[in-house]
Design a protein around this nucleic acid. Structure first.
Lengths: 339, 339
DNA sequence: CTGAAAGCGCTTACAG
DNA sequence: CTGAAAGCGCTTACAG
């Protein structure tokens, strides 16, 4: 199929009997064009239904208006919401987002980074794989001068920009809530240990325990994958402990749901006997029974802020690293109430 | 921040003392290059860590390797899975996907289409807004010669390509399953009526009823939005009917969950008293209690197939419209069992 | 404020 | 099989 030729600035120039240079300037609102020519050009562009060829503008100006986003998955509430936020601000600022999903595979992540054509993108938004050891590669990209901001899951690179939720405080809140509701033997079912937010949540858990004179017991802490089934398995393991636990704090809601399922299956009443608190506020938290008490993550905001930050770095000449920490809030439902 | 210059084919040409034309040809595996030069070029490219500038290739060859995908939302199981499938095959074929989310807003959809720079994309994948009346605009894009394939939600345009699930049959299966389990007064809580798949599912519902000598009763059919809350509201309305219903078929699982919640709230036992069947097989279907019987949609496959189809149309010279209909399967859990 | 011209990094007839 | 040259649709010093 032959595609009809698109309208170009040449066409506008010809119609208006002015140079393409002037048309170009008028279109981009450059400062050095008279108001009247600008008006004429804009009107004619609209009339002819002109649409810029981004490949040409990108090539000529060395700005692609493309942002690459690399993330582990999009088929869950958290990431799909984050990327919706990213897309929102990208769209409003006339940037395209090109996304790559790693599926939590470190190799895939590496191959994506390696095959990335840096001349075709203006910046990078990334949330790292749970097993990721590709920090060096990301460092190299940053060193090459292309802006990169991490969201949620950051590689540990000095001087990198990132936007994350306050994982420490969220976890602290969650565990404190359990304690205040009378639970004492609180287990943690966590995620991959090499992810900094896992460690932060672990730290919040420990500190909450300590500050309330409760012991931190190694057997009660399990690290595994982020999915529902892992939560289920972790819980079954915990249930076998000699010193019976009476509450579970899960790194995320999927694992918390797995925990609830395991508890119910064992005939244990969630809440009355064993309290459960999650993290995220995935819609399922309101659907499981009993309703899951959880720490809400500001997913949409994380997406929007990280994209805003990246655009700022792309636009400004000098970029100093910036770290944004957003607060979560505890959503109380029924899974961590004794009565 | 200054970005270091990227390696270009000129650099490779200089190193190898050959022309850029030859380098270009070797890189693209053109037929008319000697094996030995090709080998040398490839080796050197690798050595220098050459990466093509896509904006340049796009401009010169009039192929951007960008695919635009326009869809209502990505924050649900179905669409996030579909787009994962799209991304998968796009990535494997070296295409970027640029996505736009309409948020179910017809105006937004229109403004996205209108601002689309057709010279910057090779093809379009679209799933239409539930209130969409932008068929004319899509028609215009197709007429302009750029390949477009609809997935899941298609605008009604003669000769358009699309990939959808078998909505009629899925609905038929669902309703028949209810009938076989002893339910007789089956209601339908549907989605926007102007979407063809809504009508298909309605048709399946009606035919299943008719073929089993059951009456189709208008009061038992409600059309509203696709979310959980609408399912809840619809159900409350149905519960007020004089002639009490004994089963609900919902267009999707979110609505089915809303229905279950409404039933429970009214003290009605799901399954035993009122059966519920959904559509999608969203992970929540396994989490609600009782487990939701539902028609599984092949979401990942829909995404992959639609992208494959589009790429085929982009690559081939002539493109004849193609329609793919994928089968769903009934997943039986506990929400539609009497005992 | 405007225009002519060079250039962005590729591709592709054309000629040999 | 290879090279010189024109061109893709823009942008941007430079000169006026």
């Amino acid at each position: 199929m032959k595609r009809p030729r698109q309208i170009t600035i040449k066409d506008i120039a010809r119609e208006l009997k002015i140079s393409v240079a002037t048309v170009s300037r008028a279109l981009r609102n450059a400062y050095d064009v008279s108001k009247s020519t600008r008006r004429k050009v804009l009107a004619k562009a609209k009339e002819m239904n002109y649409r810029a060829n981004y490949n040409a503008t990108a090539l000529a100006s060395n700005q692609s208006h493309n942002i690459a986003v690399i993330l582990p998955t999009i088929t869950n509430y958290y990431f799909s919401t984050v990327i919706t936020g990213i897309q929102k601000v990208a769209y409003e600022n006339n940037y395209n987002i090109i996304f790559y999903v790693t599926g939590e595979s470190e190799e895939r992540e590496l191959s994506i980074i390696k095959s990335l054509s840096l001349s075709s993108i203006d910046g990078l938004l990334v949330s790292v794989t749970s097993e990721s050891r590709n920090a060096r590669q990301f460092k190299r990209i940053m060193d090459s001068g292309i802006p990169l901001v991490f969201f949620d899951r950051a590689a540990e690179i000095k001087g990198s920009s990132k936007v994350v939720q306050n994982d420490y405080e969220g976890a602290y809140l969650a565990v404190e809530h359990l304690i205040e509701n009378g639970y004492q033997k609180i287990a943690l079912i966590g995620g991959a240990e090499n992810l900094s937010f896992s460690r932060e949540r672990l730290r919040g858990y420990k500190d909450a325990l300590k500050n309330h004179q409760l012991p931190v017991i190694k057997e009660r802490i399990i690290h595994s994958a982020f999915n529902q089934n892992s939560g289920y398995e972790d819980t079954r393991r915990l249930l076998k402990l000699n010193d019976q636990i009476d509450a579970i704090f899960a790194v995320n809601d999927r694992k918390a749901v797995g925990a609830i399922l395991a508890l119910k299956e064992s005939g244990i009443r969630v809440g009355a006997e064993v309290g459960v608190v999650g993290f995220t506020n995935d819609p399922i938290a309101a659907i499981v029974s009993p309703g899951l008490t959880t720490v809400e993550e500001p997913a949409l905001e994380i997406g929007m802020k990280s994209c805003e930050l990246l655009l700022k770095q792309i636009t400004k000449k000098r970029t100093s690293p910036e770290v944004l920490v957003l607060q979560g809030t505890l959503i109380v439902r029924h899974s961590a109430i004794r009565g």
